[in-house]
Amino acid sequence: MTLVAVAVLVIVLSGEGRAPEDRAPERLVAALKLGGSPQDVAFSLDDKTLAVAVGETAELWDIGGRQRIEQPFTGHGGGTFGGRVDAVAFSPDGDTFATASQDGTVRLWSVRTNAQVGQPLVNRPDIHPNDDWRRSVEFDRGGTRLLSAGLRGTAVWDVASRARVTWVDGGPWDAGFNAAGDRIATGDTASLATMWQVPGGGQIGKAFAGHSKAPNFSDNVFAVAFNRDGTLLATAGGDGTVRLWDVASQTQSGEPIAVRGPEDVAFTADGRLLATAGDEGARLWRVSDHQPVLGPLDSSEHYGAEKLALSHDGRVLAVAQSGGFHVFLWDVSAV
């Protein structure tokens, strides 16, 4: 049965009027069994292929056929912190995808040839890459620039020339482009997120301060994401909250959303909903009033959710199982 057929079946059975948690189990479309624990996931622009970070490799999966495509992409490894691939991202044209690793490098790969393209990208020439764990990677919407946040700050490269165009001393955990690609947000320590100009790297306004460090909690902001038009920024903090911010005024929008152990956030393309990943699995929330509409989406093993990605057509949510060996695909089209 194809993905579309399964999705249609799920929609028919969804049943309006029930609580979010009651509707969750029947929305499971597929479970992709991996050879290791997934660290990140990303959809290609046509939503036919899923990239998955697994161990020191990255895998491409044909979503419709539930099959891995070719062999894993290998090359990372040997860093001070290891060589695990922590992040993957597709270029907008789908010809290239990027990987970011604990070995301190970001690498580009050809989807067509299954081979690495050029030399690895290194954040700072004055620091050995083995000491510069890379934790995130993202292309801007035009595909001309690539960013990666990590242990020694966040770098932005020009994809064609491979020249570093921006570096900021922020974002040890995550970073993301806004819609125009002329600014980035970073998830920092001290319960802060910061916005920066691209190119140039100048800080824009004050840091987004609202997360807190409570006893037995981290003071890190683990994930950041702009909505599609760049008017809102979502942040996931170690204080167990996800917060939305009005970008223009740099003030918090609405009350915090309580998420146990939040790891990742992503807006739907239309901006109506926000997906969160955490200890209880993935959930969907209405942006307008911060109320839950679906979830928790979790496996029977209850490992929780490490990372997530929404398909570009808004129909499928991919969730990387935290500490497990699966990526789960959930139908979210009728929410």
Rank of each mutant, 00 (worst) to 15 (best):
A53S: 14
Q116M: 15
P120C: 13
Q39L: 12
L147N: 09
T74H: 11
E59D: 14
Q102C: 07
E138D: 11
D126V: 14
G79K: 00
D86K: 14
K48H: 14
G77V: 06
A53R: 10
Q102G: 05
V117Q: 14
R66S: 12
L50S: 02
L108Q: 07
S148C: 03
F90N: 04
L108M: 10
Q116I: 12
G78P: 03
E70W: 14
R162A: 00
G78M: 12
A100N: 01
R112E: 15
A53K: 04
P72S: 09
A155S: 11
T96S: 09
F43T: 01
L108E: 04
S44M: 03
R112C: 04
A42P: 02
R112H: 14
G36L: 04
A160S: 12
R162K: 10
I63G: 03
G94C: 03
E59Y: 00
V137E: 02
E56Y: 02
L50N: 01
A58P: 07
E70L: 15
D40C: 09
D103W: 04
A51T: 09
Q116T: 13
H76E: 10
R107W: 02
V88M: 12
T96C: 09
G83E: 09
A58G: 07
V85Y: 02
R124Q: 14
D140L: 00
V117R: 14
W109Q: 08
W133I: 03
G36Q: 09
S110H: 13
E70Q: 15
R145A: 08
P38Y: 05
I63P: 01
E56M: 00
Q116L: 08
R134Y: 03
T57R: 05
S37V: 02
V156P: 07
T96K: 07
D86N: 15
D93M: 12
G65D: 12
W157S: 06
D47H: 02
L146S: 01
G77Q: 11
G55N: 07
L50C: 02
G94S: 10
I127E: 05
A155D: 06
L146E: 03
V159S: 00
F43L: 07
V52H: 03
T99Y: 01
G55L: 03
D86V: 01
F73H: 11
G104V: 05
G82S: 07
R107K: 15
D103R: 00
A160Y: 01
S91G: 12
G78N: 11
G118S: 12
W157T: 06
W167C: 03
W133F: 13
W133R: 13
H128K: 15
N114W: 13
T99P: 02
G75W: 08
